[in-house]
């Protein structure tokens, strides 16, 4: 998986996505702009991070969950 490793931890691109959310990005387009990842990978990655509990989503806007905050500390 591109954003979450088999051990359940965020990969390097997962971490980049989480950090971009901490830096104020909230839409996939903004995350793609901050991380330089292609938009299709960002959408897929955000879905994985959400399923793994690192990210929360409300109506297409993403933010860090408590687990996400912990992961990037």
């Amino acid at each position: 998986m591109p954003c979450v490793a088999p051990d359940g931890k965020p990969t390097s691109s997962g971490m980049a996505t989480l950090k971009s959310l901490k830096d104020g990005a909230s839409t996939p387009e903004e995350v793609a702009g901050k991380t330089g990842q292609p938009l299709f990978r960002v959408r897929s990655g955000l879905r994985e991070l959400k399923n793994a509990g690192f990210v929360e989503e409300i109506e297409g806007k993403y933010s860090l969950s408590k687990n996400g905050e912990t992961a990037i500390q």
Binding site: M1, P2, L39, F40, R41, S44, E48
Partner: peptide, 13 residues
Amino acid sequence: TQGTLRLSDYKGT
């Protein structure tokens, strides 16, 4: 090979 993808992930491109 780059994780689970949906066709809709490509919307806008």
